[in-house]
C-alpha cells in the first residue's frame, strides 16, 4: 500500500498541519500555538542544555522501561504459551490486567518506588509488558502444528525447538506486541513523569500546564508525537515485510 502511494504519508502530515493551523486560527493564541511557530520553538529548544536534559531523562526511563517490558513480556508470554493449561488460566487475567486503568495503580507504584527514575520505569514497563505478553502467548498457541511436528521429526531438543521454531514462527505477532508495547510504554513513562517526577518531558508538560505556557506544551507534544509516529511507522513497515513472508 505505502509502495503504491509513496506521497500518502507526506500528504497526511501536510493535512494535519493545515488542520492544526485551522484550529489555531479558530481557537486563538491563548489556547494553541501555530504549527510553524511551534516547530521553530522546538528547534530552538532542542539546542538548549536544559531541554536536552529533560529529553535524556525521559529517554533513559523509557528505554529501560521498554527493555523490561519486552524482555518480561516475552518471558511471560513464552512460559504461558508453552502450556495449554497455563494459557487458559492466564489469558483472562492478562486481558483483565490490560483493561485496568493503570493510572489507578500509580499511587501504589509511588509508594513502592518513591519519586524518581525507578517509579517512571516501573510505570512505563507496567503499561508495556502486558501487550507483549499477550501477543507472544497467543503467537505460541497459534503456531501451525505441522511446524512443531516437523521439529519433533527432526528430533530437536526443547531449547532448540523454542529458539529455532517457536520464536521465529511467532516473530510477526511478537513484533505486533512490541509495537503496542512501545506506544504504551511511552505513555506510561510520560504519565509517570507528569505525576511523580522532577525531570523529563512529562514533568516539563506538567509545569507548563501550571504556567499556561502554550508554546512549551505544544512543542513537547509535537516532539512526543513525532517520535512515537516515526518509530511506530518503522515497526509497522517491518511487521508488514515480515508478514508478507508468512
Amino acid at each position: 500500500m505505502s509502495r503504491s502511494l509513496p506521497w500518502a504519508p507526506v500528504a497526511l502530515i501536510v493535512l494535519l498541519l493545515v488542520l492544526w493551523q485551522g484550529a489555531f486560527l479558530l481557537a486563538g493564541p491563548d489556547a494553541l500555538a501555530a504549527p510553524l511557530q511551534t516547530i521553530a520553538y522546538l528547534a530552538q529548544q532542542l539546542t538548549t542544555p536544559e531541554f536536552q536534559q529533560h529529553i535524556a531523562a525521559t529517554g533513559t526511563a523509557f528505554l529501560i522501561a521498554l527493555l523490561i517490558a519486552i524482555a518480561g513480556g516475552l518471558l511471560i508470554g513464552l512460559m504461558l504459551g508453552l502450556s495449554r493449561t497455563a494459557t487458559e488460566v492466564a489469558e483472562p487475567l492478562l486481558l483483565a490486567g490490560n483493561s485496568i486503568p493503570k493510572i489507578a495503580l500509580y499511587p501504589i507504584v509511588l509508594l513502592l518506588f518513591g519519586i524518581g527514575l525507578s517509579a517512571k520505569v516501573a510505570f512505563g514497563a507496567l503499561h508495556g509488558i502486558i501487550p507483549v505478553a499477550i501477543f507472544t502467548m497467543s503467537a505460541c498457541r497459534n503456531i501451525a502444528p505441522v511446524l512443531l511436528k516437523s521439529a519433533a521429526v527432526m528430533r530437536l531438543s526443547r531449547a532448540d525447538r523454542i529458539r529455532s521454531i517457536l520464536l521465529p514462527a511467532a516473530l510477526p505477532d511478537i513484533v505486533t506486541g512490541v509495537r503496542m508495547g512501545f506506544s504504551l510504554t511511552l505513555i506510561g513513562t510520560v504519565l509517570g513523569e507528569m505525576f511523580g517526577s522532577q525531570s523529563g518531558l512529562g514533568y516539563l508538560l506538567m509545569t507548563a500546564i501550571g504556567l499556561q505556557n502554550t508554546q512549551v506544551i505544544m512543542a513537547v507534544t509535537l516532539l512526543l508525537v513525532a517520535f512515537a509516529a516515526t518509530v511506530s511507522t518503522a515497526l509497522l513497515a517491518y511487521e508488514r515485510r515480515l508478514r508478507s513472508r508468512y
Partner: peptide, 20 residues
C-alpha cells in the same frame, strides 16, 4: 518416545519454515 533415526516424514500441510 522420539522419532527413530533414519525416518523422514512429509506432511500434507505446508511445513516449510517461512522465515528461511
Amino acid at each position: 518416545a522420539s522419532v527413530p533415526d533414519g525416518v523422514g516424514v512429509v506432511f500434507q500441510e505446508n511445513a516449510c519454515f517461512p522465515w528461511l
